[in-house]
Design a binder for these strands. Structure first.
Length: 322
DNA sequence: TCCATTTGACCTAG
DNA sequence: CTAGGTCAAATGGA
């Protein structure tokens, strides 16, 4: 019995380290792509090189970072490690969902017994939006639960992305009516959209990146580093908020870092760089965190020039390149 | 028949 | 132990 367990564990460790090294390489590849796109973007912005539009490049950069973060996110916790199928299967970018469920299926015949098959989210980053009415944010949601919440007058509804199963999209949201007068709808978003609609919103993000509406309140607060990549990868979703009328919403980003992002009038590039790099800082592991934290501190200074930022960006990759 | 919602049970974090 | 998040069978509508 014990011998069997040991053998299983050693197999898992092996599989896991292989997966880590594979994921890491993929993540590095994605980051290198992102750097390449960023350099192209710089020549577009600085040198007037119009071979490829800034918007296209920005979309590519965003996608590259999203993919990177998803890759890194797919192997973030030890619990996940213990549940990786022995086949060493790699999950598609963005898929960090019910891996445990699959392992349960293979391990136990009973589908009724779900013990250990479910890992509750703990203090993950979230986006909170408060609106006076229930509005459609453009994504296809499917309700999967409803709970009575302590000290809350109204029940809380739980939604997941409709494409959870066909595309592995792990985005979820919770909607709860507040007790205020008039009642408001508080929507809390978790996770990232990896379904096709993400691409759509990413494009929206690029297209709207010049028009920052000062009526949208952005604030950063948080409690946990572990999931920040998943959270920030969903920024295309966040940006999409601008599609809707702006007189009725409050958007709150929860993030663990205190990088003074409460300014509404920062440029779109400042906004993107500080967020994405901050995300990297918190998730790339201790061996790279020191490098990245330096970048974070410099990027939060909105007075940096484009060249300064690119130099910082290059510095990051010193630690990555093989 | 398919798909979304409802709802009670299950499960975990605190 | 409790509150809250998720699952999945049951149910209902198109």
């Amino acid at each position: 019995m014990e011998r069997h367990t040991d053998a299983t564990m050693s197999t898992m460790e092996c599989t896991w380290s292989e997966k880590i090294s594979g994921d890491r390489k993929r993540a590095i590849d994605e980051l290198l792509r992102g750097r390449s796109f960023t350099k192209q973007l710089r020549s577009v912005l600085v040198g007037g090189d119009q071979q490829e539009s800034a918007q296209d490049l920005l979309a590519k950069i965003l996608r590259s970072f999203n993919d990177t973060l998803s890759i890194l996110n797919s192997g973030e916790s030890n619990e996940v490690v213990s549940q990786i199928p022995a086949s060493g299967q790699l999950y598609s970018p963005g898929w960090h969902g019910r891996r445990s469920e699959e392992s349960c299926e293979s391990g136990k015949s009973s589908t009724k017994d779900r013990r250990g098959c479910y890992k509750r989210r703990k203090n993950s980053q979230s986006l909170i939006r408060i609106t006076p009415n229930f509005h459609d944010d453009g994504y296809a949601w499917r309700k999967y639960g409803q709970k009575v919440i302590l000290n809350a007058k109204h029940q809380r509804s739980y939604y997941r992305c409709t494409h959870k199963h066909d595309q592995g999209c792990m985005a979820t949201k919770q909607v709860q009516m507040t007790e205020e007068e008039p009642p408001m709808y508080k929507t809390t978003y978790h996770g990232q959209h990896t379904c096709k609609s993400m691409l759509k919103s990413s494009q929206i993000m690029v297209e709207n990146s010049t028009a920052r509406d000062s009526s949208i309140l952005l604030s950063f607060e948080s409690n946990n580093q572990d999931d920040s990549n998943a959270f920030f990868s969903s920024f295309p979703l966040i940006k999409q908020e601008e599609e809707i009328p702006n007189d009725d919403q409050e958007v709150t980003y929860n993030n663990h870092t205190n990088n003074n992002n409460k300014n509404n009038n920062s440029s779109s590039s400042d906004y993107l760089l500080s967020l994405e790099l901050t995300t990297s800082e918190s998730n790339l592991g201790s061996d790279h965190g020191d490098v990245l934290s330096g970048v974070n501190s410099s990027c939060t200074d909105s007075t940096h020039s484009l060249d300064d930022m690119m130099m910082d960006f290059d510095d990051v990759f010193i630690g990555f390149e093989c």
